[in-house]
Nucleic acid binder design. Sequence first.
DNA 1: CAGTATCCGGTGCGATACTG
DNA 2: CAGTATCGCACCGGATACTG
Lengths: 161, 161
Amino acid sequence: MPPRICSVARTLEVVGERWSLLVLREVFLGVRRFDPIREATGAPRAVLAERLRDLVAAGVLDRREYREPGTRVRHEYHLTPAGRELQPVLTALMQWGDRHLAGPGQPPLELRHADCGGRVRTALVCEEGHTLPDTGTGLRPVPRAGDRDRATRDSAPAGGS
Amino acid sequence: MPPRICSVARTLEVVGERWSLLVLREVFLGVRRFDPIREATGAPRAVLAERLRDLVAAGVLDRREYREPGTRVRHEYHLTPAGRELQPVLTALMQWGDRHLAGPGQPPLELRHADCGGRVRTALVCEEGHTLPDTGTGLRPVPRAGDRDRATRDSAPAGGS
DNA sequence: CAGTATCCGGTGCGATACTG
DNA sequence: CAGTATCGCACCGGATACTG
């Protein structure tokens, strides 16, 4: 029997490598060049080069040439539209770390809504406008055709603990 | 200069290993025993055993004994409260995969609100009640004391050579 | 069933060095 | 600055065997 290939697994093939999400964190923060990214993440040069190549190939980053007057052509890494949509992934990871792995005097980074200044967080919302608790209580996973016999076969997913 | 240790990095030390999030996906779906998890994820036995141990040690999973009548004691893995709060991480990953890596005829799994039946998704919301686009447009990261000089400096290579 | 133990081959990773 | 080249090692995955 083949393992279950879901969207989680597929996404992890793009951003699941050891340094990928930390690289993306930096690009989201506006750090777009090789060495600054390297210093902020701690990734080895060769690994970083490979990650950047992979993320570009996956359509998450875009490698752009630029030239400062008097210097040679260099490259910057920008998020593509698809890359920008990874923001909720990073936000969710950060939120969990803030809550459960806080170091001394954290958190070092806050997310605020540019329009109103309010603190921004990741939430589970339904199309009727309800907001679910982060624990996913009240969330019901519904398998669809083709994966039926393997999905929520065992016990009640959302209710129990 | 030390790399930036943020909550993203810290969280990835808990769930960033290759199989961790897929294991958690299964537990969220109600698959709680060793072999079913192994079959659904495809992780090798030894690796799965280690991941489960790590996740228990990290306080994300709870290993519980249970005994079916007439058999010996066995173990099941349940989410702790902290583990349940990883739901937004999995949801965000799944959502991105659904949108950008859809296989033929996906998605195989839907999330619905048990109360109203509405489809559930991850969203960026601010405390004033606004919902931001998934791209994070309008999201302003605000560095806090202690990480000041490195945070949202953009790409100007201000300092040393 | 639920693991642990061992071997083995591949590769991701880290450190260092080199280049345009 | 932005990488490439190289090397050794640790870890990962696959297979197999053993245990309570």
